[in-house]
Design a protein around this nucleic acid. Structure first.
Lengths: 205, 205
DNA sequence: GCATGGTTCTACCGTTCGTTCAAACTTCAA
DNA sequence: TTGAAGTTTGAACGAACGGTAGAACCATGC
């Protein structure tokens, strides 16, 4: 039985390696722009071998999303009784690290349009679950007066947009480390929401 | 000559219609995921006709980017002597309108990876020009003390990310108008940068 | 009405890509 | 060493797609 476990572990590792390679390719060239050979060649395999680990190309895309979303959802489960700004700041930092460190920066930025309705529904469900969690934190801050009275949905989109966009420009060779980015982003985005001395400014026009 | 002008105008309009259809399709299914027939069918044409207006599929993608980037660059040319926060706010609002109103929300969110090196270089040049403009505004605010001492590059990415992400979730049927979004986003993002009473907080760890 | 030039359609070619499958290779327990 | 199970390969297929060419269609000016 020892051997069976080792084997299982090994194929599990290979599945993850395929996911990393696929996610990197999808991110660079898009789902439809990536061929199975693109994915396999980077791992010194032939494309045929991929079908031993995944049913088809779509299953790989689904697994990428599912894997990433699980990591993203994990950022919700934190801090039992912290302030809204603390919770938001920690969430943002955790998210930045997930985006950059896991699957090499893919996460929510990939197409899911290519998925069939059934698989798509499962991904959307998870994404919605995360959206609700993020909005709840912002809502909490608005209610407690910590944050300004913003449209919670829009504010949430703005925060997530800024973070998700990272995968479009981040390069591991760049000067910024994931840690730098995480700190700067949480500073910036939490300040965006905080009720400052600036009055909810009466706007021109 | 009257007739020649009318004809010319008509083909110009058709070119733009093709671009709008193409941009919508690219945004939904990605560049490689959309076929020439996808683009033409939405306009009640056959794919063959598209080649009368554009050399090939790549030319359409290039035109989408080029068209959008020209609109985006136009947002730089404003306010001769305004404060950094005013300039940034107006830029953000203009950008949101461009993203939503022009080409139905495509802009910088499309793949450019599919472009050949020559065309890619031209797009990147324009995008860089815009990046410099946006960074200059933020830099101005930091220098004048209006904004906090942030990493200008990161702050610029955060602002642009939030805005560009709009094309991923915006639906014309939704409750938010372009105007609502523009106002909320400029409020949020300018506040993110403003030097508030919150001290450049000494951070845990 | 007819000829000209602009526009669109249809049919087709060549290529690429996802997927399949049977054969070959590897690993390891007996 | 042998055999069975796990893994990889390489060739082949069928479908979809980008692009092309020439015929067909349509509007306009004489």
């Amino acid at each position: 039985m020892q051997a069976a476990e080792r084997r299982q572990k090994k194929t599990e590792l290979k599945r993850e390696a395929i996911l990393r390679s696929a996610a990197a390719a999808f991110r660079r060239k898009g789902y439809h722009g990536t061929s199975m050979e693109d994915i396999s060649e980077a791992l010194l395999m032939t494309k045929g071998s991929l079908y031993y680990y995944f049913q088809d190309k779509e299953a790989i895309l689904f697994a990428c999303h599912d894997f990433s979303l699980d990591k993203v959802l994990a950022t919700l489960k934190q801090d039992p009784e912290a302030s809204a700004s603390q919770r938001l700041a920690r969430m943002i930092e955790a998210l930045v690290h997930v985006i950059i460190d896991e699957l090499g920066g893919s996460a929510l930025a990939l197409d899911f349009t290519a998925l069939s309705p059934e698989l798509l529904a499962r991904i959307i469900a998870k994404r919605d679950q995360f959206d609700r969690g993020m909005r709840a934190v912002i809502q909490q801050g608005v209610k407690s007066g910590e944050f300004r009275k913003v449209d919670v949905k829009l504010a949430s989109f703005a925060v997530l947009g800024a973070i998700n966009w990272i995968s479009k420009w981040f390069r591991p060779e760049g000067e910024q480390t994931a840690h730098d980015i995480a700190r700067t982003y949480s500073d910036l985005l939490v300040s965006a929401l905080k009720a400052g001395e600036l009055p909810a400014a009466p706007r021109r026009k």
